[in-house]
Amino acid sequence: EVDPIFNGPQGLGLYLLKDKSPLKNYKGIKQGLKKVFNTIGIFKETIEFFPFYLLGYLLCDRRHYDIFIGGGQWALLLGYVLKKMRKVKIVVADDYDYQAGNQTITKFRFLFTRYLENFVLKQSDLIISVGHLLAELRKKELKREIKIIPNGVDYNLFAVAQEKLPHPPTLIYTGAVEWWSGLDLVIKAMAEVKKDIPNLQLMIIGHCYPQYLNYLFELAKQLRIKKNIEYLGRKPYKELPFYLKRADIGLAVYSPIKIRKYGFSLKTIEYMAAGLPVIITQNIQTALIVKKYQCGKLVEFEENSIATAIKHLFINQSIYKTYSSNCLKYAPQFDWEKLIDDFYQTIISVNSTLLS
């Protein structure tokens, strides 16, 4: 595991300077170095992605295509170039994230990423965003029509987790264990909830850099709940339902930064397919789904709000069962097979005249 100092969003921050968050501000030379190296990271990104995408095509393929589908500014830049080379007819933007929102250290890098992202999106023949918040942002900035198709779930795979195994009261988090995951707030909330639910457990599955993981366990140790935290590391995707069988509530307590606000959390729909009510930060895209279908509790990004939601769901079993029932009722509409068919039909219907 090597994390270069020019890495995408964090720069010198989270790992080289041992930050708990890349939003941390230093005084003097450390803060200056952090901003300088983060800005230099633009050049690293520029030579790391697009040239190799293009080189890979030129060396390994060279065929002509009707439709190019790309996600992210660098992949779409390749689509733009291939269309100029007349190698593809139509470029479709799979708009799954607000990439500029991942740049939190310097305004220059944010503006650079936003400019490039908007440029390649404007050149695309069709933009399909994952949610209403991102679509509204694109409409405002690009002044064009945006189609919306959400992220989904392999429903048959995760429905297996609806049959639970014996376990203590358990919270679960799956996915990237990053500073924006809110797990430090969850651990603080657990210290309060433990007074009422002594055997409450937290199961964490996903990749985590050592610095942040050490911080989480040091925090748990200070709060005397380290034995209640179980970190299992990375697990194969097909094994996730086995762990969801031993959980009661799914966590998506994200920091409300832009990259999380506009993204569509896969884990939320996976929790729902497994019958788990969700605790999620309010005012982000996936929270709209949880609120619309009454599949969990929306919370503020602070420990007291999270603690109240945890206690509310475990103590009020009638509400828990209602949320769980709603999860089972509405999750099937997010099955990937249906959504991929919608994606395909959208491309064909919108671009039929161009293809002809």
Score class of each variant (00 low, 15 high):
276 L>Y: 10
276 L>V: 03
273 A>R: 06
230 E>P: 00
219 L>Q: 08
259 I>G: 11
281 T>D: 09
264 F>M: 15
266 L>W: 12
226 K>L: 10
234 R>T: 15
225 I>H: 00
267 K>S: 11
238 K>P: 00
246 R>S: 13
280 I>A: 02
260 R>M: 13
259 I>V: 14
272 M>C: 12
252 A>Y: 07
245 K>I: 02
258 K>H: 07
250 G>D: 07
273 A>N: 05
220 A>S: 12
253 V>C: 11
225 I>V: 09
258 K>S: 15
277 P>S: 08
223 L>P: 04
233 G>M: 13
266 L>Y: 15
218 E>K: 15
235 K>W: 05
220 A>L: 06
234 R>A: 06
219 L>Y: 02
260 R>Q: 13
273 A>Y: 04
227 K>F: 06
283 N>K: 13
285 Q>C: 04
270 E>M: 08
252 A>C: 14
254 Y>M: 09
215 Y>D: 06
269 I>K: 11
223 L>I: 08
225 I>Q: 07
273 A>D: 08
271 Y>F: 14
261 K>P: 02
243 Y>I: 04
282 Q>P: 00
272 M>T: 05
256 P>A: 09
285 Q>Y: 03
284 I>T: 02
232 L>T: 03
272 M>L: 08
281 T>P: 09
240 L>M: 13
248 D>V: 10
251 L>T: 04
257 I>D: 14
217 F>V: 03
228 N>H: 13
235 K>V: 15
255 S>F: 08
244 L>I: 06
237 Y>F: 14
226 K>W: 00
284 I>R: 06
280 I>P: 01
270 E>R: 10
277 P>V: 11
267 K>M: 05
273 A>Q: 04
236 P>C: 11
270 E>C: 08
257 I>Q: 11
255 S>L: 14
222 Q>C: 00
280 I>N: 03
220 A>C: 07
261 K>A: 06
239 E>M: 03
264 F>G: 05
227 K>A: 06
247 A>N: 12
265 S>I: 02
271 Y>K: 14
236 P>R: 13
264 F>P: 01
244 L>S: 13
236 P>Q: 07
246 R>L: 12
266 L>R: 14
265 S>V: 05
284 I>H: 10
283 N>P: 01
216 L>A: 12
265 S>H: 02
217 F>I: 07
221 K>V: 00
229 I>Y: 10
268 T>I: 15
254 Y>G: 05
225 I>R: 10
250 G>R: 08
264 F>H: 09
236 P>L: 03
215 Y>P: 00
219 L>P: 04
